[in-house]
C-alpha cells in the first residue's frame, strides 16, 4: 500500500523526535498494526542517520560492561561451560528423536505458531509450524541445500537461555518433530534460528556455524 506524503512526513517527524510523549505513543501504536508505516519509519531512520556523524564517540563509564553483564546475566551465576553441557545433553536427546516424513497433520484445536525463516539472500527457506496442543513441529525446507559435509541445524531461542538445538534439518522436503515436554513451555514467542554446522549437527551442542536465518514464532 502506498503511503501518502502526509504519512511519510509523519513518519519522518516521529524519527526527528520533536513531538511530545502522547503523540509518540500514538505513532508507536500505529506502527504495531501498520507495517507499511513501520517500514517508512525504518527508512527515515536510515535516511537521517548520517546526521549523527557529527556526534563524537565518548568513552563509556568504567565498568559499563560489568554492570550490564551483572544486570543481564547475574542471576543464574552459571559458568559458561555448564550451559554448553546442558545444551549438549539436550541436543543429543533431540538428535536421537525420530524424525518422520509426510505424517498427515491431524485436525487439532490448539493454538498454532508459525515461523518463516529466510536467509538474507533469499536462497535458504524454512517454514515451521508448531502445534501447541500436540507438541509437534513440522518443518518444510526449500531453496539451497547446505554444502557437502554440512547440515542446517535448527535452534530454539527463548528468554536468556542459550539456544537449544531442535535438531538437524533435512536437506530438502518436510519433517515433523516432537518437541520435548520441557521445551513446550518455551515455544510461545520464542525465536527459531538456522545455523550452518558440520554434518550431523554441531558437535558441541551449541551453535558454532554462521547464522543462516532467524525468525520469531508467531501465533496464527
Amino acid at each position: 500500500m502506498m503511503l501518502s506524503d502526509d504519512d511519510i512526513a509523519l513518519a519522518g517527524e516521529y524519527v526527528l523526535g520533536a513531538m511530545d510523549r502522547a503523540e509518540r505513543s500514538a505513532i508507536e501504536a500505529r506502527m504495531r498494526s501498520d507495517s507499511a508505516f513501520a517500514a517508512e519509519i525504518a527508512r527515515w531512520e536510515l535516511r537521517l542517520d548520517p546526521m549523527l556523524a557529527e556526534i563524537p564517540p565518548e568513552a563509556p563509564p568504567a565498568l559499563a560492561w560489568e554492570a550490564l553483564e551483572d544486570r543481564l546475566f547475574a542471576p543464574p551465576k552459571r559458568p559458561a561451560w555448564a550451559w554448553f553441557g546442558f545444551a549438549g545433553g539436550l541436543s543429543t536427546l533431540l538428535l536421537g528423536a525420530v524424525l518422520w516424513f509426510g505424517a498427515p497433520m491431524q485436525r487439532q484445536q490448539g493454538p498454532l505458531w508459525i515461523s518463516d525463516l529466510v536467509s538474507s539472500d533469499g536462497q535458504v527457506r524454512l517454514a515451521a509450524l508448531y502445534d501447541e496442543q500436540r507438541g509437534e513441529m513440522r518443518v518444510s525446507v526449500g531453496g539451497d541445500a547446505p554444502q557437502q559435509g554440512r547440515d542446517f541445524e535448527l535452534w530454539l531461542i527463548a528468554g536468556e537461555a542459550a539456544p537449544v538445538s531442535l535438531g538437524v534439518m533435512p536437506r530438502s522436503g518436510a519433517a515433523a518433530m516432537p518437541i520435548p515436554d520441557d521445551l513446550r513451555a518455551l515455544m510461545a514467542g520464542a525465536t527459531l534460528a538456522i545455523t550452518d554446522e558440520p554434518a550431523g549437527g554441531s558437535p558441541q551442542g551449541r551453535a558454532t556455524g554462521p547464522v543462516v536465518a532467524l525468525a520469531p514464532l508467531r501465533r496464527i
Binding site: I55, P57, E58, A59, P60, P61, A64, W65, L68, E69, F73, A80, W155, I157, E160, A161, A162, P163, T191, A193, T195, A207, V211, L214
Partner: peptide, 20 residues
C-alpha cells in the same frame, strides 16, 4: 540473537562509545 555473550561483548566494546 543466538544469545552469544562473546558477540555481545564485542559489539558493546565496538559500539558503546558512539551510543554513549
Amino acid at each position: 540473537a543466538l544469545r552469544d555473550r562473546a558477540a555481545f561483548r564485542a559489539l558493546h566494546d565496538a559500539c558503546a562509545p558512539k551510543l554513549f
